[in-house]
Amino acid sequence: MPSTRPDPAADPSSAPMGRRERKKAATRQAIADAALRLFLERGYEAVGIREIADAADVSTTTLFKHFPAKEALVFDEDAEQEARLLAAVRERSEGQSIPAALCEHALTTRLAATGGDARFAAFTELVTGTPALRDYGQKMWLRHASALAEAIAEESGLAADDPACTALAHFALEAPRVAAAHDDPREAVVRAFGLLEHGWSAIREEA
């Protein structure tokens, strides 16, 4: 997807990468950028793996070392996005509720990536208009929801299969997508998470 990776140089909390890691990261980004450019220009189905490898100036073997499937080329930041999502819950400020932490995450990452970005709009159209990418994206969404529900349960002292944790995870992931269609997406996100906050407070009182 259009890159939302933070710049390590601009983040004093991030550990500096070694030369080898920087080279691997640059190669991976070059492959993902080449793939997305070709997909947006010609359509996902019309572009082959060898064309992407040639455009990124790498071998197909190198490409598959970074991306196990063609669909993964479109969702290249999947693991990083999930890590940031879980960190929002596990590393939230003392006294901050889980819904509030997830709201902050939605406003500063997911919503910020979509607002007024023509490239992101084109990416979204590519995914929604390609069955293989829609299916892959849905599997990722479900995986993120499962991981988030588990983190919420751990942080709240609730059972791993507590339906309240599962529901909060699903709603929290869905809220930014729904809010993006509103005239004021930020306000829509805040209102949606306000509703989640009140419901979650009741759950915590019961626990």
Results as ranks from 00 to 15, higher is better:
T128F: 08
C103V: 03
R119Y: 10
R134C: 13
L102R: 03
A106V: 12
F123L: 03
G129D: 10
A100M: 14
A132D: 13
G116E: 11
A106G: 05
A113G: 12
A100G: 12
T108L: 09
T114A: 13
E125I: 04
G116F: 08
P131W: 03
P131K: 01
A101N: 06
P99E: 14
T128N: 04
Y136P: 00
T128Y: 02
L107I: 13
Y136C: 06
T108Y: 02
A112P: 00
R134D: 02
A113I: 14
L107D: 07
L133F: 09
E104S: 09
L102A: 06
R110F: 12
P131H: 07
A132V: 10
G137M: 07
F123Q: 11
D135V: 11
L126A: 06
A101S: 14
Y136F: 14
A121M: 09
L126D: 11
T114F: 05
A122Q: 13
A106D: 10
P131D: 02
L111G: 01
A100W: 07
A122N: 06
A113M: 11
A122F: 04
D117I: 14
H105T: 11
A100H: 10
C103I: 09
A101H: 10
T124H: 04
E104W: 04
A106W: 03
A112R: 01
A132C: 01
A100S: 14
A106P: 00
V127I: 13
C103G: 08
D117Q: 13
A132P: 01
P131E: 01
A106F: 03
T124K: 00
T124D: 07
L126M: 11
A106R: 00
A112F: 04
A113H: 01
T108W: 00
F120Y: 15
E125S: 13
T130W: 01
L111C: 03
A101K: 05
T130E: 02
A122G: 12
A121V: 15
T130D: 04
G129M: 07
E125C: 00
F123S: 08
T109C: 05
Y136N: 02
R119N: 14
Y136L: 01
F120P: 11
